[in-house]
């Protein structure tokens, strides 16, 4: 069971939220993610690929409102339109999360890709074929953000 690969991403997400928004968030009850279950809402995701000792994908997904909030907080201006600036800033945030997580993963032989951004209301997120995706919600005052993880060894090890 390779839970050790997930913890650094959880820690990094918590840390980045604390630093950029001054909001202390805590990971909630993890669940097996089923895209057909329409109860999770998000508009923009940063996708990070992982290779090496394990194979998989880590996704950080935000609803529009939180993305706008983050962008406003970083720029110091009130941003109300969900435009390219916001997308770029979210990309940057995910980049920082990935960078922070990487520090916690130094001891493992892992390759961590640069994050890439996907947007759209509840856009499809596909994990590794045949490997279930686990979701970890973080509740914030403006709604939930999600960390989705699909790592090969999590199940097959």
């Amino acid at each position: 069971m390779q839970v050790k690969y997930i913890q650094p991403f959880v820690n990094a997400t918590v840390k980045v939220f604390k630093e950029f928004l001054g909001v202390a968030i805590k990971p909630g009850q993890p669940f097996l993610f089923d895209h057909n279950e329409n109860k999770y809402s998000y508009d923009i995701s940063g996708i990070i690929g992982i290779g090496g000792q394990t194979l998989g994908i880590v996704v950080v997904s935000f609803p529009k409102l939180i993305a706008l909030n983050l962008a406003s907080s970083i720029t110091g201006e009130t941003i109300k339109i969900f435009d390219d600036t916001v997308i770029d800033l979210v990309g940057e945030i995910v980049n920082i999360i990935a960078g922070n997580a990487k520090k916690g993963l130094e001891e493992y032989k892992l390759a961590i890709s640069l994050p890439s951004i996907v947007k759209g209301v509840n856009h499809q997120i596909t994990g590794i074929t045949g490997v279930p995706m686990i979701g970890i919600p973080f509740s914030t005052p403006k709604g939930n953000i999600y960390l989705f993880v699909s790592l090969k060894d999590l199940i097959t090890a």
């Binding site: 996708i47 990070i48 690929g49 992982i50 290779g51 090496g52 194979l55 998989g56 994908i57 390759a111 961590i112 890709s113 640069l114 994050p115 890439s116 996907v118 856009h123 596909t126 590794i128």
Partner: peptide
Amino acid sequence: EFEFVQVVDGSVVH
């Protein structure tokens, strides 16, 4: 021999 990972069009390529 090493593993290279990149995200292309929203999906992960190993």
